[in-house]
Design a protein around this nucleic acid. Structure first.
Lengths: 183, 183
DNA sequence: AGGCAATTGACAGTATGCTGACGATAGGCT
DNA sequence: AGCCTATCGTCAGCATACTGTCAATTGCCT
Protein backbone atom coordinates (compact mmCIF):
# COMPACT_ATOMS: atom_id res chain seq x y z
CA UNK A 1 0.00 0.00 0.00
CA UNK A 2 2.89 2.32 0.64
CA UNK A 3 3.15 4.81 3.43
CA UNK A 4 1.85 8.34 3.48
CA UNK A 5 3.97 11.25 2.42
CA UNK A 6 3.06 14.70 1.25
CA UNK A 7 4.50 17.78 -0.40
CA UNK A 8 3.55 21.42 -0.43
CA UNK A 9 2.68 21.45 -4.06
CA UNK A 10 1.40 19.04 -6.61
CA UNK A 11 0.21 15.51 -6.71
CA UNK A 12 1.77 13.03 -4.41
CA UNK A 13 4.76 11.35 -5.91
CA UNK A 14 3.35 8.13 -4.60
CA UNK A 15 0.25 8.28 -6.69
CA UNK A 16 1.94 9.88 -9.65
CA UNK A 17 4.68 7.33 -10.08
CA UNK A 18 2.51 4.30 -9.54
CA UNK A 19 0.52 2.64 -12.27
CA UNK A 20 -2.01 5.47 -12.09
CA UNK A 21 0.66 7.58 -13.70
CA UNK A 22 -1.07 6.16 -16.74
CA UNK A 23 -3.69 8.77 -15.90
CA UNK A 24 -1.79 11.69 -14.44
CA UNK A 25 0.91 11.77 -17.05
CA UNK A 26 -1.60 11.54 -19.81
CA UNK A 27 -1.58 14.78 -21.78
CA UNK A 28 -5.34 14.64 -22.12
CA UNK A 29 -5.76 14.57 -18.37
CA UNK A 30 -3.39 17.46 -17.87
CA UNK A 31 -5.08 19.53 -20.54
CA UNK A 32 -8.46 18.91 -18.96
CA UNK A 33 -7.06 20.06 -15.62
CA UNK A 34 -5.52 23.12 -17.24
CA UNK A 35 -8.88 23.93 -18.76
CA UNK A 36 -10.51 23.58 -15.36
CA UNK A 37 -7.90 25.84 -13.80
CA UNK A 38 -8.22 28.47 -16.52
CA UNK A 39 -12.00 28.61 -16.20
CA UNK A 40 -11.78 28.81 -12.44
CA UNK A 41 -9.32 31.68 -12.50
CA UNK A 42 -11.35 33.59 -15.05
CA UNK A 43 -14.49 33.11 -13.02
CA UNK A 44 -12.75 34.47 -9.93
CA UNK A 45 -11.44 37.53 -11.72
CA UNK A 46 -14.72 38.14 -13.46
CA UNK A 47 -16.97 37.55 -10.48
CA UNK A 48 -18.64 40.97 -10.56
CA UNK A 49 -19.59 40.94 -14.21
CA UNK A 50 -20.56 37.30 -14.16
CA UNK A 51 -19.06 36.53 -17.55
CA UNK A 52 -17.67 33.17 -18.60
CA UNK A 53 -14.55 32.99 -20.77
CA UNK A 54 -16.68 31.98 -23.74
CA UNK A 55 -19.11 34.82 -23.22
CA UNK A 56 -16.16 37.17 -23.06
CA UNK A 57 -14.83 35.61 -26.24
CA UNK A 58 -18.11 36.20 -28.03
CA UNK A 59 -18.27 39.82 -26.90
CA UNK A 60 -14.67 40.38 -28.03
CA UNK A 61 -15.38 38.86 -31.42
CA UNK A 62 -18.51 40.95 -31.85
CA UNK A 63 -16.62 44.11 -31.00
CA UNK A 64 -14.12 43.21 -33.67
CA UNK A 65 -16.64 41.93 -36.25
CA UNK A 66 -19.95 43.65 -35.68
CA UNK A 67 -22.79 42.20 -37.71
CA UNK A 68 -21.20 38.79 -38.05
CA UNK A 69 -23.54 35.81 -38.26
CA UNK A 70 -23.65 32.89 -35.86
CA UNK A 71 -21.89 30.39 -38.11
CA UNK A 72 -18.99 32.72 -38.86
CA UNK A 73 -18.73 33.54 -35.18
CA UNK A 74 -18.52 29.83 -34.51
CA UNK A 75 -15.69 29.45 -36.99
CA UNK A 76 -13.92 32.32 -35.32
CA UNK A 77 -14.05 30.69 -31.91
CA UNK A 78 -14.08 27.03 -32.89
CA UNK A 79 -17.60 26.36 -31.70
CA UNK A 80 -20.39 24.47 -33.42
CA UNK A 81 -23.77 25.98 -34.24
CA UNK A 82 -25.60 24.68 -31.21
CA UNK A 83 -23.02 25.94 -28.78
CA UNK A 84 -22.85 29.37 -30.38
CA UNK A 85 -26.62 29.60 -30.32
CA UNK A 86 -26.57 28.78 -26.62
CA UNK A 87 -23.92 31.29 -25.60
CA UNK A 88 -25.35 34.03 -27.79
CA UNK A 89 -28.86 33.27 -26.59
CA UNK A 90 -27.86 33.79 -22.97
CA UNK A 91 -26.04 37.02 -23.81
CA UNK A 92 -29.08 38.14 -25.74
CA UNK A 93 -31.37 37.35 -22.80
CA UNK A 94 -29.16 39.55 -20.66
CA UNK A 95 -29.42 42.38 -23.16
CA UNK A 96 -25.75 42.39 -24.11
CA UNK A 97 -26.16 41.19 -27.68
CA UNK A 98 -28.61 42.00 -30.42
CA UNK A 99 -29.80 39.37 -32.90
CA UNK A 100 -31.45 40.18 -36.21
CA UNK A 101 -32.27 38.14 -39.28
CA UNK A 102 -30.29 39.17 -42.32
CA UNK A 103 -32.39 40.79 -45.01
CA UNK A 104 -30.10 39.51 -47.70
CA UNK A 105 -30.04 35.90 -46.54
CA UNK A 106 -32.91 35.12 -44.24
CA UNK A 107 -31.18 31.99 -42.94
CA UNK A 108 -28.53 34.08 -41.25
CA UNK A 109 -28.84 35.51 -37.78
CA UNK A 110 -26.67 38.60 -37.51
CA UNK A 111 -25.15 39.62 -34.21
CA UNK A 112 -23.95 42.88 -32.75
CA UNK A 113 -23.17 44.31 -29.34
CA UNK A 114 -25.76 46.38 -27.55
CA UNK A 115 -24.52 49.32 -25.52
CA UNK A 116 -24.63 47.18 -22.39
CA UNK A 117 -22.53 44.58 -24.17
CA UNK A 118 -19.87 47.11 -25.06
CA UNK A 119 -19.79 48.31 -21.48
CA UNK A 120 -19.51 44.76 -20.13
CA UNK A 121 -16.68 44.01 -22.54
CA UNK A 122 -14.76 47.10 -21.53
CA UNK A 123 -15.36 46.45 -17.87
CA UNK A 124 -14.10 42.88 -18.19
CA UNK A 125 -10.91 43.80 -19.97
CA UNK A 126 -8.85 44.03 -16.82
CA UNK A 127 -10.22 40.78 -15.46
CA UNK A 128 -9.29 38.94 -18.65
CA UNK A 129 -5.76 40.33 -18.49
CA UNK A 130 -5.34 39.35 -14.87
CA UNK A 131 -6.72 35.87 -15.48
CA UNK A 132 -4.22 35.33 -18.26
CA UNK A 133 -1.39 36.60 -16.12
CA UNK A 134 -2.32 34.41 -13.16
CA UNK A 135 -2.67 31.29 -15.26
CA UNK A 136 0.89 31.50 -16.56
CA UNK A 137 2.36 32.98 -13.41
CA UNK A 138 4.22 29.74 -12.59
CA UNK A 139 6.31 30.14 -15.74
CA UNK A 140 9.05 32.59 -16.53
CA UNK A 141 8.73 34.87 -19.53
CA UNK A 142 10.77 32.64 -21.80
CA UNK A 143 9.01 29.54 -20.56
CA UNK A 144 5.67 31.09 -21.37
CA UNK A 145 6.77 31.77 -24.89
CA UNK A 146 8.05 28.24 -25.17
CA UNK A 147 4.88 26.75 -23.76
CA UNK A 148 2.57 28.80 -25.94
CA UNK A 149 4.64 28.15 -29.03
CA UNK A 150 4.47 24.41 -28.53
CA UNK A 151 0.78 24.57 -27.72
CA UNK A 152 0.15 26.64 -30.79
CA UNK A 153 1.95 24.14 -32.97
CA UNK A 154 -0.19 21.31 -31.64
CA UNK A 155 -3.34 23.31 -32.32
CA UNK A 156 -2.28 24.47 -35.76
CA UNK A 157 -1.54 20.91 -36.75
CA UNK A 158 -4.87 19.56 -35.54
CA UNK A 159 -7.00 22.53 -36.45
CA UNK A 160 -7.94 21.39 -39.96
CA UNK A 161 -9.21 18.04 -38.72
CA UNK A 162 -11.43 19.39 -35.96
CA UNK A 163 -15.18 19.52 -36.37
CA UNK A 164 -15.10 23.31 -36.50
CA UNK A 165 -11.69 24.51 -37.64
CA UNK A 166 -10.86 28.00 -36.51
CA UNK A 167 -10.74 30.52 -39.34
CA UNK A 168 -12.14 33.90 -40.07
CA UNK A 169 -13.65 32.90 -43.40
CA UNK A 170 -15.31 35.72 -45.25
CA UNK A 171 -17.75 37.60 -43.17
CA UNK A 172 -17.59 41.07 -44.56
CA UNK A 173 -20.74 41.96 -46.41
CA UNK A 174 -21.83 45.50 -45.66
CA UNK A 175 -25.35 44.76 -46.84
CA UNK A 176 -25.66 41.89 -44.39
CA UNK A 177 -24.03 43.84 -41.66
CA UNK A 178 -26.13 46.94 -42.08
CA UNK A 179 -29.24 46.15 -40.09
CA UNK A 180 -27.40 44.35 -37.32
CA UNK A 181 -25.48 47.45 -36.44
CA UNK A 182 -28.48 49.67 -36.00
CA UNK A 183 -29.19 49.70 -32.31
CA UNK B 1 -11.60 45.24 -44.24
CA UNK B 2 -8.38 43.70 -45.41
CA UNK B 3 -7.87 41.29 -48.25
CA UNK B 4 -8.14 37.54 -48.23
CA UNK B 5 -5.20 35.21 -47.89
CA UNK B 6 -4.93 31.67 -46.64
CA UNK B 7 -2.49 28.98 -45.57
CA UNK B 8 -2.58 25.22 -45.45
CA UNK B 9 -2.40 25.01 -41.72
CA UNK B 10 -3.50 27.04 -38.80
CA UNK B 11 -5.42 30.17 -38.24
CA UNK B 12 -5.11 32.84 -40.82
CA UNK B 13 -2.30 35.23 -40.09
CA UNK B 14 -4.70 37.96 -40.90
CA UNK B 15 -7.04 37.15 -38.11
CA UNK B 16 -4.35 36.09 -35.71
CA UNK B 17 -2.24 39.19 -35.90
CA UNK B 18 -5.10 41.63 -35.77
CA UNK B 19 -6.53 42.87 -32.54
CA UNK B 20 -8.44 39.60 -32.22
CA UNK B 21 -5.08 38.12 -31.39
CA UNK B 22 -6.27 39.22 -28.00
CA UNK B 23 -8.40 36.09 -28.24
CA UNK B 24 -6.32 33.62 -30.19
CA UNK B 25 -3.12 34.23 -28.32
CA UNK B 26 -4.89 34.00 -25.02
CA UNK B 27 -3.65 30.91 -23.19
CA UNK B 28 -7.17 30.20 -21.97
CA UNK B 29 -8.47 30.06 -25.51
CA UNK B 30 -5.68 27.78 -26.64
CA UNK B 31 -6.17 25.45 -23.71
CA UNK B 32 -9.87 25.22 -24.42
CA UNK B 33 -9.08 24.34 -28.02
CA UNK B 34 -6.54 21.76 -26.90
CA UNK B 35 -9.16 20.23 -24.65
CA UNK B 36 -11.58 20.11 -27.55
CA UNK B 37 -8.97 18.48 -29.77
CA UNK B 38 -8.01 15.92 -27.13
CA UNK B 39 -11.61 14.90 -26.53
CA UNK B 40 -12.26 14.65 -30.25
CA UNK B 41 -9.26 12.42 -30.86
CA UNK B 42 -10.12 10.17 -27.95
CA UNK B 43 -13.69 9.85 -29.17
CA UNK B 44 -12.46 8.84 -32.61
CA UNK B 45 -10.09 6.23 -31.27
CA UNK B 46 -12.63 4.91 -28.82
CA UNK B 47 -15.62 4.89 -31.16
CA UNK B 48 -16.37 1.16 -30.79
CA UNK B 49 -16.39 1.08 -27.02
CA UNK B 50 -18.17 4.39 -26.73
CA UNK B 51 -16.13 5.58 -23.77
CA UNK B 52 -15.34 9.21 -22.99
CA UNK B 53 -11.92 10.16 -21.60
CA UNK B 54 -13.48 10.73 -18.20
CA UNK B 55 -15.23 7.39 -18.21
CA UNK B 56 -11.94 5.77 -19.13
CA UNK B 57 -10.28 7.69 -16.31
CA UNK B 58 -12.82 6.42 -13.81
CA UNK B 59 -12.39 2.83 -14.97
CA UNK B 60 -8.59 3.16 -14.73
CA UNK B 61 -8.82 4.57 -11.24
CA UNK B 62 -11.18 1.82 -10.14
CA UNK B 63 -8.85 -0.83 -11.51
CA UNK B 64 -6.08 0.69 -9.44
CA UNK B 65 -8.15 1.41 -6.32
CA UNK B 66 -11.01 -1.05 -6.14
CA UNK B 67 -13.54 -0.24 -3.44
CA UNK B 68 -12.76 3.46 -3.40
CA UNK B 69 -15.60 5.82 -2.54
CA UNK B 70 -16.94 8.57 -4.78
CA UNK B 71 -15.33 11.49 -2.96
CA UNK B 72 -11.88 9.91 -2.98
CA UNK B 73 -12.32 9.06 -6.63
CA UNK B 74 -13.14 12.70 -7.25
CA UNK B 75 -9.96 13.79 -5.49
CA UNK B 76 -8.03 11.35 -7.61
CA UNK B 77 -9.34 12.82 -10.84
CA UNK B 78 -9.98 16.40 -9.77
CA UNK B 79 -13.76 16.20 -10.08
CA UNK B 80 -16.41 17.43 -7.69
CA UNK B 81 -19.05 15.22 -6.13
CA UNK B 82 -21.79 15.96 -8.61
CA UNK B 83 -19.65 15.25 -11.63
CA UNK B 84 -18.30 12.01 -10.21
CA UNK B 85 -21.82 10.89 -9.39
CA UNK B 86 -22.83 11.62 -12.98
CA UNK B 87 -19.99 9.76 -14.65
CA UNK B 88 -20.19 6.82 -12.27
CA UNK B 89 -23.96 6.72 -12.59
CA UNK B 90 -23.75 6.35 -16.35
CA UNK B 91 -21.09 3.66 -16.05
CA UNK B 92 -23.25 1.91 -13.51
CA UNK B 93 -26.29 2.06 -15.80
CA UNK B 94 -24.20 0.37 -18.45
CA UNK B 95 -23.21 -2.37 -16.04
CA UNK B 96 -19.51 -1.49 -15.98
CA UNK B 97 -19.32 -0.32 -12.38
CA UNK B 98 -20.80 -1.61 -9.16
CA UNK B 99 -21.94 0.73 -6.39
CA UNK B 100 -22.52 -0.33 -2.81
CA UNK B 101 -23.03 1.53 0.43
CA UNK B 102 -20.22 1.07 2.92
CA UNK B 103 -21.21 -0.90 5.98
CA UNK B 104 -18.70 0.95 8.08
CA UNK B 105 -19.76 4.43 7.04
CA UNK B 106 -23.18 4.50 5.47
CA UNK B 107 -22.53 7.89 3.88
CA UNK B 108 -19.95 6.40 1.59
CA UNK B 109 -20.74 4.85 -1.76
CA UNK B 110 -18.07 2.34 -2.62
CA UNK B 111 -17.18 1.61 -6.21
CA UNK B 112 -15.65 -1.31 -8.04
CA UNK B 113 -15.39 -2.60 -11.57
CA UNK B 114 -17.79 -5.26 -12.76
CA UNK B 115 -16.41 -7.90 -15.10
CA UNK B 116 -17.74 -5.91 -18.06
CA UNK B 117 -15.93 -2.85 -16.75
CA UNK B 118 -12.64 -4.68 -16.59
CA UNK B 119 -13.16 -5.93 -20.12
CA UNK B 120 -14.01 -2.45 -21.40
CA UNK B 121 -10.95 -1.00 -19.71
CA UNK B 122 -8.66 -3.59 -21.23
CA UNK B 123 -10.24 -3.19 -24.64
CA UNK B 124 -9.82 0.59 -24.51
CA UNK B 125 -6.17 0.50 -23.56
CA UNK B 126 -4.93 0.65 -27.12
CA UNK B 127 -7.29 3.45 -28.03
CA UNK B 128 -6.10 5.54 -25.10
CA UNK B 129 -2.48 5.01 -26.13
CA UNK B 130 -3.17 5.95 -29.72
CA UNK B 131 -5.13 9.04 -28.71
CA UNK B 132 -2.24 10.22 -26.57
CA UNK B 133 0.21 9.58 -29.36
CA UNK B 134 -1.88 11.41 -31.95
CA UNK B 135 -2.43 14.44 -29.74
CA UNK B 136 1.28 15.07 -29.33
CA UNK B 137 2.26 13.88 -32.78
CA UNK B 138 3.07 17.45 -33.93
CA UNK B 139 5.88 17.63 -31.38
CA UNK B 140 9.24 15.89 -31.33
CA UNK B 141 10.15 13.70 -28.40
CA UNK B 142 12.12 16.40 -26.63
CA UNK B 143 9.43 18.98 -27.32
CA UNK B 144 6.81 16.73 -25.78
CA UNK B 145 8.86 16.41 -22.65
CA UNK B 146 9.32 20.15 -22.58
CA UNK B 147 5.65 20.83 -23.15
CA UNK B 148 4.45 18.36 -20.55
CA UNK B 149 7.00 19.56 -18.02
CA UNK B 150 5.86 23.14 -18.36
CA UNK B 151 2.21 22.12 -18.29
CA UNK B 152 2.85 20.03 -15.20
CA UNK B 153 4.47 22.94 -13.46
CA UNK B 154 1.49 25.16 -14.14
CA UNK B 155 -0.86 22.51 -12.80
CA UNK B 156 1.24 21.73 -9.74
CA UNK B 157 1.34 25.38 -8.85
CA UNK B 158 -2.40 25.91 -9.20
CA UNK B 159 -3.50 22.52 -7.90
CA UNK B 160 -3.82 23.52 -4.23
CA UNK B 161 -6.09 26.45 -5.05
CA UNK B 162 -8.52 24.54 -7.24
CA UNK B 163 -11.94 23.58 -5.97
CA UNK B 164 -10.95 19.92 -5.96
CA UNK B 165 -7.18 19.56 -5.68
CA UNK B 166 -5.85 16.31 -7.06
CA UNK B 167 -4.47 13.97 -4.40
CA UNK B 168 -4.81 10.37 -3.44
CA UNK B 169 -5.74 11.06 0.17
CA UNK B 170 -6.18 7.95 2.26
CA UNK B 171 -8.51 5.49 0.78
CA UNK B 172 -7.30 2.15 2.00
CA UNK B 173 -9.61 0.61 4.54
CA UNK B 174 -10.05 -3.10 3.95
CA UNK B 175 -13.27 -3.13 5.93
CA UNK B 176 -14.76 -0.46 3.69
CA UNK B 177 -13.41 -2.08 0.60
CA UNK B 178 -14.61 -5.55 1.39
CA UNK B 179 -18.21 -5.53 0.25
CA UNK B 180 -17.55 -3.42 -2.81
CA UNK B 181 -15.26 -6.04 -4.25
CA UNK B 182 -17.75 -8.88 -4.03
CA UNK B 183 -19.33 -9.14 -7.46
C1' DA C 1 -39.66 27.33 -63.83
C1' DG C 2 -38.52 23.44 -61.27
C1' DG C 3 -35.68 20.51 -58.68
C1' DC C 4 -31.76 19.44 -55.84
C1' DA C 5 -28.01 20.07 -52.75
C1' DA C 6 -25.92 23.00 -49.41
C1' DT C 7 -26.45 26.20 -45.66
C1' DT C 8 -28.45 27.97 -41.46
C1' DG C 9 -30.94 27.96 -37.21
C1' DA C 10 -33.67 25.49 -33.91
C1' DC C 11 -34.57 21.58 -31.20
C1' DA C 12 -33.96 17.28 -28.54
C1' DG C 13 -30.82 14.40 -26.45
C1' DT C 14 -26.33 13.37 -24.17
C1' DA C 15 -22.08 14.25 -21.33
C1' DT C 16 -19.02 17.20 -18.60
C1' DG C 17 -18.43 20.37 -15.00
C1' DC C 18 -19.93 23.74 -11.73
C1' DT C 19 -23.03 25.85 -7.62
C1' DG C 20 -26.16 25.75 -3.85
C1' DA C 21 -29.36 23.42 -1.02
C1' DC C 22 -31.02 19.46 1.37
C1' DG C 23 -31.13 15.19 4.16
C1' DA C 24 -28.67 11.35 6.18
C1' DT C 25 -24.91 9.99 8.71
C1' DA C 26 -20.82 10.13 11.66
C1' DG C 27 -17.76 11.85 15.16
C1' DG C 28 -16.54 14.75 18.83
C1' DC C 29 -17.63 17.39 22.85
C1' DT C 30 -20.13 18.45 26.88
C1' DA D 1 -27.57 11.15 26.10
C1' DG D 2 -27.76 15.54 23.58
C1' DC D 3 -25.79 18.78 20.50
C1' DC D 4 -22.86 20.63 16.95
C1' DT D 5 -20.20 20.24 13.10
C1' DA D 6 -18.24 17.99 9.28
C1' DT D 7 -18.83 14.80 5.60
C1' DC D 8 -21.19 12.44 1.86
C1' DG D 9 -24.67 11.64 -1.65
C1' DT D 10 -28.41 13.59 -4.15
C1' DC D 11 -30.97 16.92 -6.47
C1' DA D 12 -32.06 21.13 -9.09
C1' DG D 13 -30.21 24.56 -11.86
C1' DC D 14 -26.87 26.56 -15.00
C1' DA D 15 -23.21 26.73 -18.80
C1' DT D 16 -20.32 24.42 -22.25
C1' DA D 17 -19.98 21.33 -25.98
C1' DC D 18 -21.32 17.67 -28.87
C1' DT D 19 -24.70 14.74 -32.13
C1' DG D 20 -28.57 14.17 -35.17
C1' DT D 21 -32.74 15.71 -37.11
C1' DC D 22 -35.91 18.97 -38.99
C1' DA D 23 -37.64 22.98 -41.57
C1' DA D 24 -36.70 27.19 -43.94
C1' DT D 25 -33.99 29.29 -47.22
C1' DT D 26 -30.72 29.87 -50.86
C1' DG D 27 -28.06 28.98 -55.00
C1' DC D 28 -27.14 26.32 -58.77
C1' DC D 29 -28.21 23.62 -62.61
C1' DT D 30 -31.14 21.94 -65.92
Amino acid sequence: MGTNRSRQHGIDRWVRDERLGAIYRRPGFMIRRAHQVAIGIFAEECADLDLTPQQHGVLSALARFPGIDQISLGRLLGLDRSTVAGVVGRLSDRGLVRRSVSRVDRRRLLLALRAAGTRALEASHGAAERAQERLLAPLSASERTQFLTLLERVLDEHNPSTRVPVSHGSYADPRMTANALRE
